[in-house]
Simulated assay, not measured.
Amino acid sequence: MTVPSPPTPPLTPELIERLERAAQAKNRDALRRASRLAGNPYAVTVYERGGLWASLVGTLPGLPWYNTVSGVTQHRLTGLDEVLDLYRSAGISPRLSVGSADLTPALGAALFDRRFTPVGVGATLYAAAGSPQPQTFSGIQIHELALGEATNTFNDVLLAGYGFTNAAQQALAVLENEGPKVRRYLARVDGQPAAVAALSIQDGVAYLAGAATLSAFRERGIQSALIHRRLGDVAALCEPVECELVTVTTAFASGSQRNLERHGFRLAQLKILWAETLWAKRQRVIQATP
């Protein structure tokens, strides 16, 4: 007997905020822990004030994922100016993440005035937590790893799947998946490690993340199998109610988004990514030159 999926709740500003908190918690926790490592070896600075969140990673100044400001709204422009001063002092050009629900004409004009321009679009998707439809994935075996189990294998697949080669980037990616609330999954194909994924839960919202597949095993449905397995595990947590919703972030209109939609996910909001214009970057370099 097929169990009907629970209804997906309608979008509200409060629900969007709840989804975003769950999606950001894993990365933010990792950066906080990185900043507290002895000697702060990756030069991590975390800024939280009035709803704004910003991270600066001095050893990775050119990677926007680690040098991003989120929570940007029209009413937080004063705080944004303070944060931008921190980046300028560090010689880092940040990326601003603006939710589509917060992007007003006035905010857009204010960001243009600050020499920022849109450079990309991400998507936050969500679904109600419920048992997925039965499905088989031939030749794919998925195992949830216990604490400390197959850590080297998981990390090797994660980093190779992402294609990370920078030592600091590798260390932060590993740290993100070592959080106390992170559940790790390893997929094998015919006994060979092929892909990994992670799951974390925040405020009743499960977040699917950490998905990486070795190049030799792509286009075989492994990530679909990992999505299906994690959705099943999330559904098992609903008695007693521990998790009501599932969320995930991905590139907008990507193959990943289409894959997730086949598993019942729907769009929650778009994330407009803003970066400094080339002119602004050049001016900052000129002003910093003695």
Rank of each mutant, 00 (worst) to 15 (best):
A173L: 00
A173H: 05
A173T: 05
V174T: 06
V174Q: 08
L175V: 04
L175M: 05
L175Q: 04
L175N: 01
L175W: 01
L175T: 00
E176A: 10
E176K: 14
E176P: 05
N177P: 10
E178R: 14
E178P: 04
P180T: 13
K181P: 00
K181C: 11
K181F: 11
K181G: 09
R183Y: 07
R184V: 07
L186Q: 01
A187Y: 00
V189E: 10
D190M: 05
D190F: 11
D190G: 15
G191S: 05
G191R: 01
G191D: 09
G191V: 12
P193C: 09
A194P: 01
A195D: 07
A195W: 02
A195K: 09
V196M: 10
V196L: 12
L199G: 08
L199A: 10
I201V: 15
I201F: 03
I201A: 08
D203F: 04
G204Y: 05
G204V: 01
G204M: 06
V205G: 00
A206K: 08
A206Q: 05
A206W: 08
L208T: 07
A209F: 06
A209Q: 05
A209E: 13
G210Q: 07
G210M: 07
A211V: 14
A212R: 02
A212I: 04
T213M: 07
T213S: 15
A216H: 12
A216E: 14
F217S: 04
R218W: 09
E219A: 07
I222F: 12
Q223I: 12
Q223Y: 13
S224G: 05
A225S: 12
A225T: 06
A225D: 05
A225M: 06
L226M: 15
L226C: 07
H228D: 14
R229G: 10
R230E: 12
D233F: 06
D233L: 09
V234A: 12
V234Q: 12
V234T: 12
V234H: 06
A235I: 11
A235N: 01
A236T: 01
A236D: 02
L237C: 08
P240E: 15
V241M: 15
V241Y: 10
V241T: 13
E242N: 15
E242C: 14
E242T: 13
C243L: 10
